[in-house]
């Protein structure tokens, strides 16, 4: 039971941060939306469709960011064997998968009016699709075990192995670039996006990152609660004849401890 004493530190640390983080995220996304939809110029080539970029690029960023986060969590779980690292990786996966899917969907909705096709087998699109497969594989693996601890550990190992793919996604644009525009945000000679477009883009990226951390904290709490429930059920204290069971120490409930 006391194996989960450490995670309660997590709850104490995050409880005061969470409302501020949620508020900042809401403000950032609202401001980002205002600039993205009203107060930004249209692109001279792409017209209004450039407004999709303010969703597409942050989603792609989040998809990669979450995967790197999972790989780092996997490395930490490998080195320090801290259960929280596994839980964080596990809580990150659905968020990353959602953003990767959103990146593909918004990219598709941008590609149809601009290139005249919903999908091209371009290097970056394809790598993003592979990233989505990696997320789905991770989620399937983590949930395939009766013991969630075993699932999380296997998942951490898989995240590390799959992390080899993330640099391929990043640099594949230099290997084969066909219909897709060359990477224009992260370039060695500075961003090529017009300054008036950088502000909404930066706001949305920050807002999405904030959203990730808010949902991450909530999902880690959810995981901790579920582990606690499972530990209670397995402890045998709910059997009527288990009189000698180890006394249960309350106060680790993720929500009541606030």
């Amino acid at each position: 039971m006391h194996r989960f004493a450490k995670p309660s530190v997590f709850l104490k640390l995050t409880a005061p941060i969470l409302p501020w983080l949620a508020g900042a995220t809401a403000i950032l996304i609202a401001a980002g939306l205002y600039f993205a939809l009203f107060a930004s110029p249209i692109d001279y080539q792409q017209g209004d469709t450039v407004r999709i970029m303010y969703l597409h690029v942050p989603s792609a960023w989040m998809g990669l960011f979450c995967y790197v986060g999972m790989a780092i969590c996997g490395a930490m779980s490998l080195i320090w064997k801290h259960p929280l690292a596994d839980i964080c990786a596990r809580a990150t996966a659905p968020i990353g998968a959602t953003f990767t899917a959103l990146c593909l969907i918004t990219g598709s909705l941008w590609g149809e009016p601009m290139w005249g096709t919903w999908w091209v087998w371009d290097a970056r699109l394809t790598s993003m699709l592979i990233l989505l497969f990696l997320y789905l594989g991770y989620i399937a693996l983590v949930n395939a075990f009766d013991d969630p601890d075993r699932g999380s550990k296997a998942g951490s190992a898989l995240a590390l192995v799959g992390a080899v793919n993330v640099p391929i996604v990043k640099f594949s644009v230099d290997w084969w670039n066909t219909l897709h525009q060359p990477a224009s945000i992260v370039r060695m000679d500075g961003p090529a996006v017009d300054p008036s477009m950088q502000l909404p883009l930066a706001l949305m990226i920050l807002g999405f990152t904030g959203y990730y951390f808010v949902v991450l904290i909530l999902r880690v709490r959810l995981e901790l609660n579920e582990r606690r429930i499972r530990a209670l059920h397995l402890s045998g204290m709910f059997d009527d004849n288990a009189q000698d069971a180890e006394p249960y120490d309350p106060g680790h409930n993720a929500e009541t401890s606030q």
């Binding site: 017209g47 469709t49 407004r51 999709i52 597409h56 909705l109 009016p113 949902v215 999902r219």
Partner: peptide
């Protein structure tokens, strides 16, 4: 949106729905 409204609004809609559903489910 200069004739591209359906594309732009559907991408904003899908993103909003996905993010809200994920948050609510959590």
């Amino acid at each position: 949106m200069g004739g591209y409204g359906s594309y732009i609004w559907s991408s904003y809609g899908v993103t909003a729905i996905a993010m809200i559903v994920l948050l609510l489910a959590t």
